[in-house]
Design a protein around this nucleic acid. Structure first.
Lengths: 329, 329
DNA sequence: GTGAAAGCGCTAACAC
DNA sequence: GTGTTAGCGCTTTCAC
């Protein structure tokens, strides 16, 4: 293994000079700098991460707790993780992927000085992890927006605004009876924050616009088709569908598309999902994009800023936007 | 921060005794052991990972290079990652998620002593990373099975055997004209190892069974339906479909199911995908499970064994198995 | 069965 | 602008 001492010797300077060349924390003459840099390159030196973290009391690693369980939208999770990892690297951080999604895992990483900060996804209201995080002494950011005391900074997509936007769009298209085909029942029941916020925005917007809106939990599996059929049969006057359900989306789009063709109905499907997912669904005209990678990147930016400046920003919600071919009413 | 010295003092023993209690590397009297353990608990001590890695020259971290790009099957990737992370924790390892999937990232992690070993997914034949890994001095395992020199141990699902199994199953159901609806064109063209192996097994089995088999690349997006329609129109005598394509599967299953219903054809769809994905597709009777989480776990076991025993196992392929309601012919 | 002490490779005062 | 050196918190000889 090549150490900083080897580099110093090769460059004919002291150890600290090499260290300062790397960190840029003090002025170095152009001449020594090049000499040191050459030595570093030719020896292929990279500093020992452990030694560095021991001496500097910081690891340049951020711990990420991602929900690897099923029932979540894998596309969204993957994209958020991608955003986090990519952005972290830009700030010079690496990502330690935590195994379990309990409070213990957070403590292990923090107390073992394995990470400088923590990024936690899929936090529910009253999640015990929030209290753990507060007591940890490590900066942390939640990806999501749990209800309650708001002790930890949060980054998320503005699902509530998305609910409003969806209703505005469907109403603009001429629909007066709307349905939200939402998350699977288990997500709804868990009161996962994003599901609740979407429903709230959707219903409030329906009321504000004076249209009828109903909300339907929908399994993300085989039963999605049956669920949609049931909704359509029992509420034949619904013409505007707003779908926020990964597994159900293709079925819903197909079912409704077929029904529109067969019965000549003027039905509309508006999806809430990542852009590329929307593009892969046949027959889907518009969608509201969930900027999943952007959420990951924003959360990472926030935590890096806290790490750098000690600033303590509160909540950041990314605004929704319509995508796709806008079919004028 | 509470250090090992604090624990030693609290327990009235020397630092080394505390260290040995934790590592179990030398005999400790029952009495001191309990005293030390109590001190550890009451002080809430966890050893500093960096200090440990500096002194012991090992990090207890495994680097994982996962393809976060699109075009891959996100369900499969997520499940493999889950398997890796979960199993690693069981062996006492944590996972560092590498940002980019190039050789540089592997070097950075290894040479910076951030990891003890590397796990690399989605390796292609002639992948430059293979040579990098060989020269790195860190143990590594590939998840996948690239062609060629085989310098690095590999773990994967036995896609070739899956091709055989699929044909056997479809033939047993009475089908004589088979089609493999395969990976997207970009994956086929890249000669991603798994796609090639599946095709090879499928075609060989068709020949061995004396049935006709054709292979069709299929985009994982909107065009999947059109592709399948084209295949069915141009080859109306195909009755057995073997689908290995995340995005296309629901469409294929639906299209073929409908056609079977409308035209009264005896068509069969056999899918190759993770179990839970198969269960979420309406109207799918059987499938061959891709044990994605098992692949991740097996790869992790292998690398941990190499780390522990220095053993150098070669290739491990997980066998395919039929799932679902076996509909007798 | 236990302790003392020499590093591990780096950072960051504190010199000059 | 550069060098010297005291730690950072742990593991692991070596000594008893």
């Amino acid at each position: 293994m090549v150490t900083i001492a080897d580099v110093a010797q090769a460059a004919g300077v002291s150890i600290s000079t090499v260290s300062y060349v790397m960190s840029g924390k003090r002025a170095i003459s152009q001449e020594t700098r090049t000499r040191v840099e050459k030595a570093i390159d030719s020896l292929g030196f990279s500093p020992h991460a452990g030694a560095r973290s021991l001496a500097s009391r910081s690891t340049n690693v951020i711990g990420l707790q991602a929900p690897l369980r099923t029932g979540v939208d894998v596309h969204v999770v993957m994209q958020i993780v991608t955003g986090v990892v990519t952005q972290a690297r830009k700030h010079g951080y690496d990502i330690l992927l935590l195994a379990s999604d309990d409070a213990k895992a957070l403590q292990r990483a923090a107390k073992g000085s394995m990470v400088d900060a923590l990024l936690v996804m899929d936090v529910e209201s009253d999640d015990p992890r929030i209290e753990t995080l507060s007591g940890l002494g490590h900066p942390s950011v939640l990806i999501g927006l749990p209800e309650g005391r708001r002790a930890i900074p949060c980054v998320d997509f503005d699902f509530e605004a998305a609910g409003w936007l969806a209703v505005d769009r469907l109403v603009a298209l001429g629909h007066r009876r709307l349905a939200l085909i939402g998350s699977p029942p288990e997500v709804m029941t868990r009161h996962t924050s994003y599901a609740d916020r979407l429903v709230r925005g959707f219903l409030a917007a329906c009321e504000a616009s004076g249209v009828t809106g109903s909300v339907h939990a929908c399994p993300s599996t085989t039963e999605a088709v049956a669920t949609v059929d049931a909704v359509m049969t029992e509420n034949p006057d619904i013409t505007g569908f707003f779908v926020h359900n990964e597994g159900a989306l293709p079925h819903v789009a197909a079912t409704i598309g077929r029904s529109a063709r067969q019965r000549g109905d003027d039905l509309a499907v508006l999806a809430l999902c990542p852009d590329d997912v929307a593009r892969s669904v046949p027959g889907l005209a518009d969608s509201i994009a969930v900027p999943a990678e952007g959420i990951g990147a924003a959360a990472t930016d926030m935590i890096c800023e806290i790490l750098a400046n000690g600033s303590q920003p509160a909540v950041r919600l990314l605004p929704p936007a319509l995508t796709g071919t806008p079919t004028a009413p």
